[in-house]
Write a protein that binds this DNA or RNA. Structure first.
Length: 345
DNA sequence: TACTCGTGGAG
DNA sequence: TCTCCAAGAGT
């Protein structure tokens, strides 16, 4: 693509975005000025590797409960972790609290990409996105949508992740000085609705005349990706210990799998993966069923063992009323295990 | 660079 | 049923 063609990308995309922008709860209308940095930041963190459909109800609950960054900064971390339960990638929730407290201490959000990048949980993408969308800064915003659209637009043949440098340079070359926020959101909307991973609806694309990938005939093959490794299988056991209509729950260590989340005690499957560890009490156990759960890099088969004895569990934990188990903020894996244990009668 | 870190929906 | 993958970050 020559320089003249590069200059045509932003006007065409911005025009398309003004007409076709998705209506999303965290978004102001195109050209409607800059959005509330708190809502932009919160939504961007929630959207990391997460679909808009999954984020929407969480965004609604978070903004209703904590309408400003100051109120979020004042919240107990455990409350935020529990509210995040089910959304995944739980380090985001802990970083969210840390960033909110840093922002409250600063007296407001940094308004530059560099300042934002220094906050916990804001990487290259999120810092650029918030700078552009909330503060109107020119920033090169590259997420997986932009990677795909740019790789096709420029017909970048190098496979990911090696192609990231070239993709970023290409994205920089088409990013306008003004309206960088709308431009970024337009590119992401294009990737989410027209130029998708499995399809390229070129006849609906505002950039069709400029697209080298389309001119070559098979844009969907781009970007080229490295082959993935197979996911290994792990086995483990979770323990359901019930007494007087309450169940014994633990809080997992801050780092690692499901870090900082309330959970059923288990045999250490996340660390060892062989399910050979022991529970917090010895005695009689009854089988309570099996939960199958797929994580990003392994599949887990989690047996649920139901305690039939009356000994008191060892170690840290709390008795949680069974009828309020939904409020415990269990991550999905353990919510499944709890449902299985409760359904055994 | 390569690996860890969730979940649910689409095809 | 199974694979891919969705507004990535941290180490």
């Amino acid at each position: 693509m020559d320089n003249s063609a590069r200059g045509q990308v932003a006007p065409l995309l911005l025009d398309w975005y003004r007409k076709q922008a998705r209506r999303l709860p965290w978004r102001v209308a195109p050209g409607g000025g800059t959005a509330d940095p708190y809502r932009v930041w919160l939504s961007e963190v929630m959207l990391q590797q997460t679909t808009t459909a999954a984020v929407a109800p969480y965004f609604a609950r978070f903004t209703a409960r904590w309408p400003t960054v100051q109120t979020l900064a004042a919240a107990p971390e455990a409350d935020v972790m529990a509210e995040w339960a089910g959304l995944g990638y739980y380090s985001r929730a802990r970083n969210l609290v840390a960033a909110a407290r840093a922002v409250a201490e600063l007296g407001g959000f940094p308004d530059t990409e560099e300042g934002l990048r220094a906050l916990p949980g804001l990487g290259a993408y999120t810092a650029a996105a918030v700078a552009a969308i909330a503060f109107g800064r020119r920033a090169v915003v590259v997420d997986s949508n932009v990677e795909r659209v740019v790789a096709r637009l420029f017909a970048i043949e190098e496979p990911l992740p090696g192609a990231r440098k070239a993709i970023r340079a290409a994205a920089d070359a088409i990013t306008p000085d003004e309206h960088a926020g709308d431009f970024a959101q337009g590119l992401m909307d294009l990737g989410a609705t027209i130029c998708t991973a499995r399809d390229a609806r070129c006849l609906l694309c505002p950039l069709q005349a400029l697209c080298t990938g389309r001119a070559q005939g098979d844009p969907v093959r781009l970007p080229v990706k490295a082959a993935k490794k197979p996911r290994p299988a792990r086995r483990g056991t979770a323990f359901w210990i019930e007494r007087d209509d309450a169940v014994w729950l633990v809080t997992r260590p801050g780092k690692g799998m499901l870090g900082g989340m309330r959970a059923l005690p288990d045999d250490g499957w996340s660390a060892r993966g062989d399910g050979s560890g022991e529970g917090p009490v010895t005695g009689a156990w009854e089988p309570g069923g099996v939960v199958r759960h797929g994580f990003t890099h392994f599949d887990l088969e989690l047996a649920v063992a139901v305690y039939a004895g009356s000994a008191t569990p060892a170690g840290e934990g709390e008795w949680w009323p069974v009828e309020r188990i939904a409020e415990a903020g269990l991550p999905t894996l353990f919510a499944k295990a709890a449902a299985l244990a409760l359904a055994r009668d």
